[in-house]
Amino acid sequence: MSSHHFVKEQQEPALLILDTAGISFEQIAPLLEWVPTLLVAQEAVPLVISWGIKIDLILAEMDFQQSHYHLLEEQYPVKFLGVQGGKFLDEGLQYLIASKHGAVNIIGLDHLRVFELEPMLEFLDIVVWDGPIRYFPIKNGQFKKWFLDTSLQLHAPEGTLLEVQTPEGNEIVQVKHATFIEVQEGTTIIKGKGIFWIGEFMNA
Rank of each mutant, 00 (worst) to 15 (best):
W146I: 06
P119R: 09
K191F: 01
L16N: 05
T20M: 12
G92F: 09
G108K: 01
G194R: 13
L59D: 00
A21R: 03
T179W: 03
P157M: 10
A156K: 10
E185N: 01
Q27P: 05
L89M: 08
V104L: 09
F25R: 09
I28G: 03
Q165M: 06
S2W: 13
I106P: 15
M1Y: 12
L72D: 00
Q142M: 05
S2H: 10
L18E: 04
D110G: 06
L96D: 07
D19W: 04
S99E: 15
L162V: 15
G131S: 02
I28S: 01
L38M: 06
N105Q: 10
I138W: 08
M202E: 13
Q27M: 11
I172W: 10
E73P: 01
D130I: 13
Q142P: 00
G169D: 14
I198H: 05
M62G: 07
Y95K: 06
L93T: 04
E163I: 07
I97P: 14
G141I: 03
N105Y: 10
N170V: 07
V7P: 00
K144T: 10
E33F: 04
P46C: 12
A44S: 13
Q10F: 14
I53W: 08
E185A: 09
S3Q: 15
N140W: 02
P13R: 10
K54M: 09
G192W: 08
Q10N: 15
S24Q: 09
T179I: 09
P46I: 02
M202P: 05
L39S: 01
L124N: 08
V114S: 04
K8V: 00
K176V: 11
F25Q: 04
K144R: 14
F123T: 07
F143L: 10
V40M: 06
K100T: 01
G102Q: 11
